[in-house]
Design a protein around this nucleic acid. Structure first.
Lengths: 333, 333
DNA sequence: CTGTTAGCGCATTCAG
DNA sequence: CTGAATGCGCTAACAG
C-alpha cells in the first residue's frame, strides 16, 4: 500500500495536480461543480491525505510551535502547556513540547532541533544559560517568547507572575494571622532564576514593610536534596520559625515531608503556605493555604502573543507582562 | 537575514551541494582534509543549519513518533510519556504528544494530523472509538502500538498492566488486614475501557476467591462528578463498606474529598487503597497504601517496541505484554 | 574523491 | 476555469 499523492488523485479525477491543490486549499474558487465532484470522489476513493511535510517545505512554514519548559515537574509548567495547546488547536497550530530538565545544554539541543524542524516560533521557560543562542534568535527576529523567567538585558516579550507580590501576599496573610517568625524556603538561588529570587526579595520587602526583622537563619534557597538538612537546622534554632513559606510546589513537598517525619502539627506548631497550587491542597490535612498563579491565563496569553509575532509584523515593543497571584486561604495558616 | 541553505555553503566552500551533504551525513567518507576544512569553515561562517523538513521529504521519514494519550490528567500517562521521551532521545527520535481528552473525535483528528505530518509511528492510549481508523492503520502496516487499553479483535501490539492482579492484590491485602466489607469505585464503565473493567473483574474474582460475597451496592463505575453521590449512598447503607479500593488516581481524589468532608477516620472508619501511585501518598495523613504501576518500564518498552517496528520488519506476532503491579503498604489500610 | 542529475509532494506563477 | 512548468532544500545514484 503505497502512499497516495496528489498526482494520483489528479490522474484519477482526470485533472491536473494544481487543480487538485486549488480544490483543497480554496473552496471559494471558481471551479466547475463537475470537477469538484470528480476530485472529491477521487480523494475519497484513494483515501488521499495531504503531506504536510511537502507543504511545509514549499510554504516555508510548518504551523507548529515549540515549547521548551525548564522543568516539567512543576505543576505550573504542565498547566501552562495545557492552555497553550488549547489556543494553538483553535488556531490550527501544532505544538511540540520539550523538557530541558533545568539543563542549558539540553535546552540548547532542543532549541536547535526545533529550529531545524522549522517550527514557526518558540515559547521557552529559559534556563538562562544560553545567552548567545537567545541573542542570535532576537537578532534573526525569530518569533520568541519567554515564560516564568526573565533573561536580563534581552528584549524578548515575557510573561511572568508578579513574584514579589506573591511572596508579599503570603507574608501579609501570615502577619495578619499573628505570626512574626516567618521563614521561607525555595529551590537553589545559585543560577539566579527569576521567580526564586523575586519571591525571596518579595519576602524580605514584605517583612520590612511590617517592621519585622529579616533573619538569615529563616530563609534559604537550596537544592531539593538539601532541604531536609536545612529544615533540621532551622528547627534546632532557639526560636524556630512559626510559619514557613514554600517558594514553589516542589519545595512544599519537601516541607510537608519534613513536618510529617517530625510529627509537627499544622498550623499549631508550624504554619505553612505554598506558592503554586498543588493537586491535593484541598484534601490535605489540614487543607493547605496557597498562592495560586493564573497559569491558564498566562499560557493563553503566551500562545496568543507568540502567534501574533508569527503572523503579524515583528513587534517593536517587547514588554514583560506580569500576572497577579491569588491567595487561597485554607487551614494551614 | 535569509535562511542559509546547503547551496550557500557549497558556493562559499566552492564544492557541490552533494559534497556538503555527504560531509554532513557521513564523516567517515573519503574526502580530502582540505575540502572538509573548507566546508566546515563555510558552515561556521554562515551559521548553516540543515533543514529537517527538506530532509524528511526526501527520505520519507521524519524521525518523529506521535503519542496520543486518552487523558493526560492521569499520573500514569505523564510518567509513561516521560520514559518514552527518554528512549526516543537516545535513539535520536522526536516525540509529539497529544491529549485526546477521552474523546474519539479528538483522537481521530490527532491521528490524522500526525500521519499527515508523516510521523514514523504512533503510540496510542486508545479511546476505543475509532475502529475504522485503527483497522486502516494495521491494514497499511503502519507502525502502531497501544498502551493501557486493549481494542478487541485488533492485532496491535499492546502494553498493559495486569489489571486483574492489581485489584486482586488490593483485595488480598485488605482481607489479610481483616476487612471483609470491601467496596470499589472507579470511573465510568460504560465505554468498556480496559483497565476499568479488568480491575472491577479482578476485584470480584478476588472476593470470590476469599469466599466473600460480591455485593452490588459495594462497587460502581461512574463519572467523577457522580462519585460523591454514589459514596453518600454507600455510606448510608446499614452496613457500609469498611474499606474502599480506588480504581485509579482520579478516583482516589474523589474518595479522599468525600472522606474529608465527612470527617471519617482512615483507616479506622474506612480503609483506603488506591490503584496508581499519587504524588502525595507518602506525605498524606495517613500515608496512603497504593498499588503502583511500573510506568517507567512500560513506557520504555512501548518506545522500544515501536522503534523496532519502525526500523525492523513488521512483526508477525503482535502480542500483548502484561506488567506486574506492585503493592506499596503504608498506613491507610 | 567530487560534481551532475533527478526527484520527494506540494503550491504557485503564468499561459491557454 | 485548468494545465504546464518551476522550485522549496535536501539526498541519492551515477558518472567523472
Amino acid at each position: 500500500m503505497k502512499h497516495v499523492t496528489m498526482a494520483d488523485v489528479a490522474a484519477l479525477a482526470k485533472v491536473s495536480k494544481s487543480t487538485v491543490s486549488q480544490y483543497i486549499n480554496n473552496r471559494y474558487d471558481y471551479m466547475s461543480e463537475e470537477t469538484k465532484r470528480r476530485i472529491e470522489a477521487a480523494i475519497q476513493q484513494l483515501g488521499y491525505k495531504p503531506n504536510y511535510v511537502a507543504k511545509s517545505l514549499k510554504q516555508k512554514q510548518t504551523s507548529t510551535i515549540g515549547v521548551i519548559v525548564a522543568n516539567i515537574l512543576h505543576t505550573f509548567s504542565t498547566q501552562v502547556i495545557r492552555s497553550i495547546e488549547d489556543v494553538c488547536r483553535e488556531a490550527n497550530f501544532h505544538v511540540i513540547v520539550c523538557n530541558a530538565d533545568d539543563d542549558p545544554r539540553q535546552e540548547k539541543e532542543y532549541i536547535e532541533m526545533l529550529r531545524a524542524k522549522q517550527v514557526d516560533g518558540l515559547i521557552v521557560f529559559p534556563t538562562g544559560g544560553n545567552m548567545k543562542l537567545y541573542e542570535e534568535m532576537v537578532a534573526a527576529k525569530y518569533p520568541l517568547l519567554f515564560v516564568d523567567r526573565l533573561v536580563q538585558g534581552l528584549p524578548v516579550e515575557s510573561i511572568l507572575l508578579d513574584n514579589e507580590k506573591a511572596a508579599g501576599l503570603a507574608v501579609d496573610h501570615l502577619v495578619e494571622n499573628g505570626y512574626t517568625r516567618i521563614g521561607m524556603l525555595t529551590t537553589s538561588l545559585e543560577q539566579g532564576i527569576t521567580p526564586r529570587v523575586e519571591r525571596i526579595n518579595g519576602y524580605k520587602k514584605a517583612l520590612e514593610k511590617h517592621s519585622l526583622p529579616v533573619r538569615e537563619e529563616y530563609y534559604a534557597g537550596v537544592e531539593l536534596s538539601r532541604m531536609e538538612a536545612v529544615l533540621e537546622e532551622m528547627f534546632r534554632l532557639p526560636e524556630p520559625p512559626e510559619a514557613l513559606i514554600a517558594g514553589n510546589d516542589l519545595t512544599i513537598m519537601e516541607i510537608l515531608k519534613f513536618i510529617k517525619k517530625h510529627n509537627l502539627a499544622i498550623p499549631d506548631q508550624v504554619a505553612v503556605i505554598g506558592i503554586d497550587e498543588v493537586s491535593f491542597s484541598s484534601i490535605y490535612h489540614p487543607p493547605l493555604t496557597t498562592i495560586a498563579q493564573p497559569a491558564f491565563e498566562m499560557g493563553k496569553m503566551a500562545a496568543e502573543k507568540l502567534l501574533a509575532q508569527i503572523k503579524g509584523p515583528y513587534p517593536e515593543q517587547r514588554e514583560v507582562q506580569r500576572f497577579a497571584p491569588k491567595l487561597i486561604v485554607r487551614k494551614s495558616t
